[in-house]
Deep mutational scan, measured.
Amino acid sequence: MKVMIRKTATGHSAYVAKKDLEELIVEMENPALWGGKVTLANGWQLELPAMAADTPLPITVEARKL
């Protein structure tokens, strides 16, 4: 699914347009965010693609819901 990742004042957030859902990312498998699992505030887990740590945000990526 397409997910937009952006930086907020409190960390990172994910927006899933198909579900009209925006949630804070509360847990990251990798400190650089990319190439691992993230957990959203509502409990969803997404697998993000591997990208460079300095990838500019906001960005829309293809993520997989676990």
Rank of each mutant, 00 (worst) to 15 (best):
E29V: 06
M1K: 01
A9L: 12
P31D: 12
A32L: 13
M51S: 04
A53V: 11
P58F: 06
E29G: 05
G35F: 05
L66R: 07
A53M: 10
V61N: 01
M28G: 03
K7R: 12
P31T: 09
T10N: 13
T55A: 06
L40F: 04
L46G: 00
A50C: 11
V16M: 13
P49F: 06
I25F: 02
T60E: 14
P56T: 10
A52C: 06
L48M: 09
K2A: 11
Y15W: 11
R6M: 12
V38F: 04
E47L: 14
W44I: 08
A32R: 11
E22F: 10
G11Q: 04
R64V: 13
E23Q: 12
V26L: 08
D54V: 05
P58L: 06
E23I: 15
T39C: 08
T39Q: 07
M51V: 05
N42P: 00
L21T: 11
V16E: 03
G43C: 06
A41W: 04
T39S: 07
G11Y: 06
K65T: 11
L66Y: 09
L21R: 11
V38C: 02
R6I: 10
H12V: 12
L57M: 08
V26G: 03
L66A: 08
M1E: 08
T8P: 00
A17W: 15
I25Q: 00
K2F: 12
P56D: 08
N42T: 02
K19T: 14
R6P: 01
V38W: 03
R64P: 05
T10P: 03
L46Y: 07
D54Y: 06
K19I: 15
E62Y: 14
V61W: 00
P56G: 07
P49Y: 05
A63I: 08
G11R: 03
M28H: 12
R64Q: 10
H12E: 03
G35W: 04
A9M: 10
H12S: 03
M1Q: 05
E27A: 13
A52D: 13
A17T: 11
G36D: 02
E47R: 09
G11K: 02
L33H: 03
A53T: 10
Y15R: 10
I5R: 00
D20E: 11
E27Y: 14
A50F: 13
L33P: 03
I59N: 03
G43H: 03
G11L: 06
G11F: 04
A53G: 09
T60M: 11
L57I: 06
E47I: 14
P58H: 03
V3W: 00
